[in-house]
Design a protein around this nucleic acid. Structure first.
Length: 264
DNA sequence: ATGGTTGGTAGCCAA
């Protein structure tokens, strides 16, 4: 089973790319972030025509996440628990049945947090990460295969940036950010890309600005975290870097993981 | 060091 995360940066602006990619990459489950649309305007019919079930948690203009799946959804949960006043659409969980039992997959879009001296943005990021850790702690107690896929807006280590010194003042690379990410992983998750390779130059995002793609000035911020039960089925992770060279690309590329579970 | 680009929206903001 191939599970992929991709920050698509506007699903309506990227529909041609998305449809082409779905046919080329053929994910069983695709977790999208930054769909930037309300549910009613999500291009559901075109995606369903390729054989996918579609569940969205959209928002006007910003954010928004979705899960596309060849498997039927047994259950869908929208929104990260822990703050009833949080109206930003950044989290959706799908529950599926496989030949090895239940499988839970989350598509998450962790807050960017910039600028760090803003009185709301960075604290919101850190509180969201604390809520995610609390939620994940509860899910891990179920001892089920769980994949936490998404745009974490976290550069975990210096090796995950071409020019780490350029990110020292950025919310994505603050010590508190990196520590919160390590705390989450250390609950017992396997970070699929890092478990596959330690090679420098392993990036998932290249800014549109200043020729970042042409200079390979990238960062690795899209991650797939596997619960112990999911890691038992873990094969390898792949970054579909070539998608960044397409016409009208997203600034992120798809990141895939293969699990040795099948449809029922 | 600065400025550079894109999407959604109609506020320039968020990234």
């Amino acid at each position: 089973m191939k599970i992929v995360t991709w920050n698509i940066n506007g699903v309506r602006a990227r529909l041609g790319n998305l449809l082409h990619w779905l046919q080329e990459s053929a994910p069983d489950i695709a977790c999208l972030q930054e769909i930037k649309t309300v549910d009613e305007q999500f291009p559901r019919a075109e995606i369903e025509a390729l054989g996918y079930h579609v569940e969205t948690h959209g928002q006007k203009g910003f954010n928004g996440v979705a899960i596309l799946s060849k498997l039927r959804f047994d259950e869908v949960n929208r929104g990260l628990p822990g703050d009833e006043s949080d109206e930003q659409a950044r989290f959706i969980e799908g529950v599926f049945s496989t030949d090895k039992g239940v499988l839970r997959v989350v598509s998450l879009y962790l807050p960017n947090g910039n600028p760090i001296d803003d009185d709301r943005k960075f604290p919101y990021k850190l509180s969201w990460m604390a809520r995610l850790e609390a939620w994940a702690t509860g899910r891990l107690a179920l001892e089920e295969p769980l994949v936490l896929a998404g745009d974490y807006n976290v550069i975990p280590e210096p090796i995950d940036a071409k020019n780490p010194q350029n990110w020292l003042g950025d919310a994505l690379f603050q010590p508190e950010t990196r520590q919160a990410f390590r705390r989450l992983v250390n609950l017992g998750f396997t970070e699929a890309v890092r478990a596959t390779t330690d090679a420098p130059g392993t990036y998932t995002f290249w800014d549109y600005q200043a020729g970042a793609w042409q200079k390979d000035n990238g960062i690795r911020i899209d991650h797939l975290l596997l619960s112990p039960e999911a890691a038992n089925f873990f094969g390898s992770a792949t970054i579909e870097k070539h998608v960044r060279a397409w016409e009208k690309p997203s600034d992120h590329v798809p990141v895939a993981v293969n699990l040795t579970v099948g449809a029922v």
